[in-house]
Design a protein around this nucleic acid. Structure first.
Lengths: 197, 197
DNA sequence: TCCATTACTCAACATTGTGTTGCTTTTTTA
DNA sequence: TAAAAAAGCAACACAATGTTGAGTAATGGA
């Protein structure tokens, strides 16, 4: 978006720091990653890190927010195509995105850090999902709806995590289908039986 | 279990450190908790901490494992009562346990640390759950079963987290019912439709 | 092409928290 | 009550942090 706002050097440096960080996350735990580890890996001065991030938590958070912004953009783009029965039109591009940004997404979805990303992801899905459900079931009990969304969104996060944990053995399109199936199965079983409670 | 194995002073000290830690987790993030914070709070020497734990991560891990051991014991105790259709006989005592150990369980289920507890909890449920499912569906595709379990177990974890996040407003027995309902809804919709794939 | 701007480098620094040690005091248990 | 073991205490070296000031190099607009 702000592609021309930042100095080319800054873009380059940030990209290096982020990719170095993601790369280190394959080898060691988040808590064991030092600023020096990152800057050594990508050949930058340690001080340079602090020109852009406060610490490794800040770096992680910035990465999280960038991905989440992309997700929101995709939801806004593809939601109009959802027909109410299946979430496929939205799920498919999101899974495509994950595949296109594997290294970073692995870090976020496998979530060996703190569950900030999971939490924010859920908020995003819930925000967008509640408004859709309300169209069909305007009076459904809000508290139950909250629990429903907690269940489904964490469930999907667990699904994607499982996918990474198993080296992405399941083909991408099957992951999409399984996700959609589980979402609609849960939704219909809950929404239809208790639409008045 | 080893109630009489450990010196009374050790029992007291460990209990103090664990409760102090759980108490601090209400105020601040895990990463901001120093060993000195804990020992100051419960009036112990900082060095004493290191007689029992390597660091705060180690302390957290020990807490996790104790709770998980209790869960396994409860599953072993109550599983014989499960009739195949509902998980209520197992879910209910687990939720009771959570209520009886609120402070510690809040830390583990709200999971603002690293998702080690979630991960171990899932492993435990999966281990016990797969063997039950196999009785009824011996030939169900293993890979799909894995995804099903990832979905359901993280879903339930999300449910419990939601419960803590909303100050446990939902009555305990309703939480039990919602959990059971979501589990069996997901299970039946998946297992019945695709028992051959 | 030049020049002002600004990002990055480098070395040094104070600070904080860690994990350990040797010795003393207190508590436990048999 | 005595031996054993845990907790207190003070001091230590160490690692990593976050910041600094001054010099160097790259950038992008005129």
């Amino acid at each position: 978006m702000d592609n021309k706002q930042e100095d080319r050097r800054i873009r380059r440096t940030k990209k290096l720091l982020k990719s170095g960080f993601a790369s280190l996350m394959k080898e060691k735990e988040f808590k064991d990653i030092r600023v020096k580890d990152i800057t050594d890996l990508v050949d930058l001065n340690r001080g340079t890190f602090y020109l852009h991030y406060n610490d490794t938590y800040d770096l992680l958070e910035k990465i999280e927010n960038e991905v989440l912004d992309d997700f929101q953009t995709m939801i806004d783009t593809y939601r109009p195509q959802v027909d109410g029965h299946s979430m496929l039109p939205v799920i498919a591009p999101i899974v495509d995105y994950i595949v296109d940004n594997l290294e970073v997404c692995r870090v976020l979805f496998q979530n060996k850090t703190s569950n900030d990303f999971w939490e924010k992801f859920q908020k995003l899905i819930r925000k967008n999902g509640v408004s859709m459900i309300r169209m069909t079931y305007p009076n459904y009990n809000q508290e139950y709806l909250d629990y429903f969304f907690s269940f489904v969104t964490t469930g999907i996060l667990g699904l994607i995590k499982e996918w990474f944990d198993t080296e992405m053995r399941l083909p991408k399109n099957e992951l999409v289908l399984v996700s959609d199936k589980l979402i609609s199965a849960t939704a219909t079983s809950i929404l239809n039986k208790n639409s008045t409670c």
